[in-house]
Design a protein around this nucleic acid. Sequence first.
DNA 1: GTCTATAGATCGATAGAC
DNA 2: GTCTATCGATCTATAGAC
Lengths: 241, 241
Amino acid sequence: MEAPLNAVKPVAVPPRVPRSGQGSQRGAMEPVDRIEALPNSKAESILAAAKRTFLAAGFGAVSMDTIAREAGVSKATVYAHFAGKEELFGAVIGRECERYFARFSAGELDPRDVRASLTVLGRRFLELLLSPDSIALYRIILGEVTRFPSLGEVFWRAGPERQRVQIEAFLRSASASGTLALSDTWLAAEQFVSLVRGDIQLRHVLRLAADADRRGISAAVEGAVSTFMRAFECHTAPSRT
Amino acid sequence: MEAPLNAVKPVAVPPRVPRSGQGSQRGAMEPVDRIEALPNSKAESILAAAKRTFLAAGFGAVSMDTIAREAGVSKATVYAHFAGKEELFGAVIGRECERYFARFSAGELDPRDVRASLTVLGRRFLELLLSPDSIALYRIILGEVTRFPSLGEVFWRAGPERQRVQIEAFLRSASASGTLALSDTWLAAEQFVSLVRGDIQLRHVLRLAADADRRGISAAVEGAVSTFMRAFECHTAPSRT
DNA sequence: GTCTATAGATCGATAGAC
DNA sequence: GTCTATCGATCTATAGAC
């Protein structure tokens, strides 16, 4: 029993990109929208560095020294803006939850072609779910929800719940128009999301699949939509096309 | 921008149960099966303490001092059995993956009643998935797969893949007997698992639902089985009962 | 506000006695 | 093998100059 039963070896901290000072090469020829485009204040630099390092390595593996260095400021400046490491972490994660999941929308769908609309919807959902930052955020939140219990509700309300509401709204319209036979649209939305997600999200989170696998996304979405339509397509009144 | 946008507060380290010395009150009137029943060696005590603390608080929040104290040994003894914290963590997680997922089985199912069999199968799967240790293990692995890349494959092969193989075997037999119309049994197994899981596992992981919700499990399984049967039940040849 | 420098605590790991 | 005691590194957080 002395030898470990499984060879599970850690890796070193993520390779660090040396930054010469604070200003990066951005900010010269980009449109000046000023709102969170580039870190124009020290607070934004700190938040950006904290986001980058936390999402890449997790809460426990990142030190305030690293964040300060990555942000191009001193550690005292970090503490001048944020009360501590945990407050900074909470601010970063809360903000990222809002930022990422605000991109999802169930709008601009053709209610006359439910299959095509569900395919578009599933693809939007899965592309958001498999984006590198979304995967990293998912890892962090699940790993730190024990230490930060409020993370669970922050994440749930910003992401899954909001998506579910939008998807259910579309399913309800499709059900009202007689194209789908749904007795419980809330459950149906959960099942549609579950079918689309399948195991591809978990495989990405576990680093068993690389990102940007467009064909994998298409195949997953089409398989899910096909099964969903088989289960709920209404055959009684095809409503003449 | 100085104030955190979201109130995400951490909690203190888990409340510690003071242990007077090493021997607990167990081990006196229990059957002596000796094989991992009670920690009869220091190595087992260390592994048990490491499992308990790691699963409860995560890799970064647990120190070797805590593990030694919980195990009732000195820190030097811990290092006499395990080369370091990371090796101990790998040994614990690898062992727990094997222990937990070995409990799942797709046997003892009645192939003549596919709906009932799928219900039993789904319930077994979901009860395993929602057990407190399984939830904690899931949190740890997803949170630490960045630091321990091999955890992803260890977990996948011990859990999801093995379950999928067993479920697919049953689906194949049901498909061969003409009860289900499945063109791709591997995909069907993934979709069945996804339907059963739904969002209830995530809600448990995020601490939004308490465990031991038996009625919630039954409702989730029956909703999943109903949808799965609607999609894949074979109506062409009911194969006289 | 921002910096340098450092305090104070904790952690992982080890030396040496038994 | 097991213990006590401790080392050196690192981490969070702060004091004080500017």
